[in-house]
Simulated assay, not measured.
Amino acid sequence: MNSFIKQKILLEETLSDQLRTKRKKQGISLKEVASELKINVQYLEAMENNQLEKLPTGVYSKNFLKKYALFLNIDTKNFDNLLDGDDVSYQKKLRKNLFSKKIPEKHYFLCIPKIIKNIIIILIVLSFLVYLGFFINNIISPPKLFISYPEKDLTTDKKFIEITGITEQEVQIYINEDLVLVDVYGSFSKRISLKEGLNLISITAQKKYSKKNEIIRKILVN
């Protein structure tokens, strides 16, 4: 009766249990096994602890197990039966490692040296700041303003003068603080009455948030 119980327990014992038990009975350390079989200690521990997911994928898992079993004089005739035994979790782990062809995801960005990643981040930040600088400068810069007539200061005996010029679109033009209509092409004109003596005519162009661009024309009336 006792021999039957021992035999049943032995059959139900997993290969991992047998590897661990045999090695300890023979008084061999994992380092000694690793040195003899040229197998990493971590893989030996994984085989003894039924952690087959830690073994290399493919046929290496089965080869490592068989090599270790032969080294400890474990009968390999029933090797496949032991692998396909009653321990379902053991079987699933082994099959997952033997037949898995999943390619590990490669996070290439994480593989880049830290200094290169920092340089890339700095360049991105600098590019953004440069773009932001140009954008803000474009908003606050004074708009272009060209006075067609009079092109410069002049002397006249007329009582009126036609001020004409060109500016950018969406710009407000003020002549002597009076708002002047600007057409879709940026052209504007306004008839100004003159008084005897020196007349100062201020032409100002400004966008919504920009600085002012002001031109002064001096008109002397005789």
Rank of each mutant, 00 (worst) to 15 (best):
L83R: 03
V130L: 09
I175H: 04
S187F: 15
S127E: 07
L15T: 00
D178L: 14
F160N: 12
F79I: 05
R20T: 08
I120E: 05
H107T: 13
I74A: 07
L179I: 15
L181R: 13
V59H: 10
K218H: 10
T164I: 04
I103Q: 09
K144L: 14
E214F: 04
I116G: 03
F135V: 07
I112M: 12
N176H: 07
S16M: 02
K144T: 08
Y149P: 01
S89D: 08
V182I: 06
L94N: 03
G165A: 04
V130N: 00
E170A: 11
L65G: 06
L194E: 02
L52P: 00
A34Y: 01
N63Y: 12
K212C: 00
C111G: 12
Q91F: 10
D87Y: 09
L15R: 00
L132I: 05
Y185P: 00
Y174V: 02
K190D: 07
L72T: 09
K92P: 00
D17V: 05
I173A: 08
L200R: 12
K66F: 08
E36G: 03
G186D: 03
L52N: 02
L30S: 05
E48Y: 07
T57W: 06
E13P: 01
S35H: 08
S35E: 14
N118K: 11
E36V: 15
L37S: 07
K195V: 08
Y43W: 13
N63F: 14
T155S: 15
F109P: 01
K25L: 14
S29Y: 04
K106M: 10
D178T: 14
I203Q: 01
Y209H: 13
P56W: 06
E170D: 11
V171H: 01
V184S: 14
Y60S: 15
I139G: 11
I121K: 14
Y108P: 00
L11Y: 09
K190W: 01
K190L: 06
K207D: 01
E214S: 15
L194M: 06
V59N: 11
A205Q: 02
D84G: 09
N63W: 11
N176G: 02
T57C: 10
S210Y: 07
A34G: 13
L52H: 10
T167L: 06
Q42C: 10
K152W: 00
S210P: 04
I201N: 05
S61H: 03
S127T: 10
L98E: 10
N222G: 08
F109M: 04
L179A: 15
L154S: 06
L10N: 10
V33W: 00
V130D: 01
L179E: 15
L181A: 13
